[in-house]
């Protein structure tokens, strides 16, 4: 009898961990991500709402400066300059992810807390819009958890961007633009 109870608890915990995304969120509308400002790119950092490591934050840093902290089931949008960027997360071990930010495009990165010796270790990895939607992550990081590094959009800035900048992004199926001007033509061969 005692053994049965023990296995029931184990099975319950296993089930709770394996069904990682919040079930309620799967029926909700997908989170609206605003288009980045013209000429800028953006990355949506998110963390699924699993039980494991829920008490830990996943602080995303660039060049040693904290951009924002991700709690379980939270996301934030980082607007930044196009080019290669390196982001780090750290607890008892450090993990780094480099991404190529493209102008007028949105990319996704996911943080998970994995097993560690004394504490969970955050792991940052590339992701996709489909994975973000599937994860059911729908809560924006609170404004006081953002910064001091620049770029993370505060909740009011997200609302503003959603209301005013809709359609600013260049979608993949958009008509071909004949910009920028001639001054930016291909560089001569080396």
């Amino acid at each position: 009898m005692k053994n049965e109870a023990k296995w029931s608890v184990l099975a319950g915990l296993g089930l709770a961990l394996s069904t990682q995304p919040a079930l309620a969120a799967s029926e909700a509308d997908p989170v609206a991500i605003p288009a980045p400002p013209a000429g800028k790119g953006q990355i949506v950092f998110y963390r699924t709402g699993t039980i494991m490591g829920a008490a830990m934050g996943c602080s995303v840093n660039e060049n040693g400066t904290r951009i924002s902290s991700l709690g379980a089931g939270r996301y934030f949008i980082l607007v930044t300059e196009p080019g290669r960027h390196e982001y780090t997360v750290k607890s008892e071990a450090k993990d780094m992810l480099a991404l190529e930010v493209e102008p007028d495009e949105t990319q996704y990165a996911m943080c998970r807390i994995k097993m560690g010796f004394m504490a969970g270790r955050p792991d940052l990895r590339p992701s996709t819009e489909a994975e973000f939607v599937k994860s059911g992550t729908d809560r924006l990081v609170d404004a006081d958890d953002m910064g001091p590094g620049p770029g993370a959009l505060r909740p009011d800035e997200v609302e503003l961007a959603l209301s005013g900048a809709a359609g600013a992004a260049i979608k993949d199926d958009a008509p071909i633009a004949d910009k920028p001007a001639d001054a930016e033509e291909g560089a001569p061969a080396a």
């Binding site: 184990l10 915990l13 296993g14 961990l17 394996s18 990682q20 699993t50 039980i51 494991m52 991404l99 190529e100 493209e102 102008p103 495009e105 990319q107 998970r112 994995k114 097993m115 792991d123 990895r125 590339p126 992701s127 996709t128 033509e185 291909g186 560089a187 001569p188 061969a189 080396a190």
Partner: peptide, 27 residues
């Protein structure tokens, strides 16, 4: 000339087992 390119969109992660490991830890 060199025509500059962009938007290759190859950002991949292999199949992870973090969920399995976490489930084992919980057990």
């Amino acid at each position: 000339t060199r025509l500059r390119l962009r938007s290759m969109h190859v950002a991949l992660a292999g199949q992870g087992a973090v969920g399995t490991v976490n489930a084992i830890n919980a057990g």
